[in-house]
Amino acid sequence: MSDQAINEMISAFAAGCMDKENYLHFYNYLKQNGELPYKELGKLQTLTSMLPSILELEQPAPELKKRVAQALIAIQDEIKVKIKIERDKTLAGAHKTEAPARTTKTGTATYIENTFNAGVSDVEAQNNPAPENSAPIMGNRLFTDNNKKFYEHQSFAPVWIAVVLLFIAVALIGYFGFKSLSDIKSSILKSEANLESVKSELRNTQEFISKNGPLIEFYNYDNIWTVPLQGADPALKISGRLLLALNDNEALLQINNLPTPPPENTYQLWVVNKNQTYSLGQFFIEPGHRFVRISGLPAIVRDQSTQFKITLEPRSGSILPTGATFASGPGGVEPAKKTGRR
């Protein structure tokens, strides 16, 4: 990787704007102590962390300190509760196992019982520390040095090793169980989102096909000649194209913004060939439609045609154009597309 790329990467990391994928790569690389300009990275991290120093400082409400204290107590209590549950389970199991021994071998049983009792006394003493030993923080009580001793003391007792192992096992089972459920939920949500996206694409495709069906169908003909059509009056914004399947005497007129003709009139399509104008047929375009199929065209020689036009004519039709020209297009152009017939 070039120096520039590395510099850009550490800048993005320091500014906290890496995308998730790159962040994970960089994070793993960093964890493995990969080769990086650490001095530069440190400098940029210091710099970005200094940005908030120019903000006007706000004092948090005093209640927030209490909330922090409560959160810390909750963390402590959570650990204690878990340990207590595991301890009780272990003790119950141990008593059950040792019950017959206590009736038959009194000396041994007494020794084991005393050992457990000592453990219990220690735990209870630590769970209910004397007021003078507790450290006050923000109006509450938190961990004290005695708690540290408690954890150290417990690590020497074999029964507590069992407790810790059990606790770890339960925690792992709980964690992986929860994680699996979470993953499944996450997958379902993602799948639903994907499904919605596919449905939306499908709707768009169907809409496109329904709008452009005649055009798609027409492209099954070969030797198609496309004539662009332009409106005579720019204010009407008429546009379109005429597709002529020269070998099959078929045409497809695609026209936009052509006004609905008066009841006594209709539109007629013409071709000018060697200075003679020939009718290619009348058509009526329904409001909201853009395509008109014209069949049975006279044979059109592309090289001899000079113009195509659309005029407004009486409903009975005309032999020669009599009304105003609404749109026209050049003749004698090359075919726009040539496809094999399906």
């Binding site: 994070y27 990086l36 990275l41 440190g42 210091t46």
Partner: peptide, 13 residues
């Protein structure tokens, strides 16, 4: 551990 805890360069003032 991945996204919230800071990963600071070990060469920092």
């Amino acid at each position: 551990d991945t996204f919230i805890m800071p990963h600071i360069s070990h060469e920092i003032d």
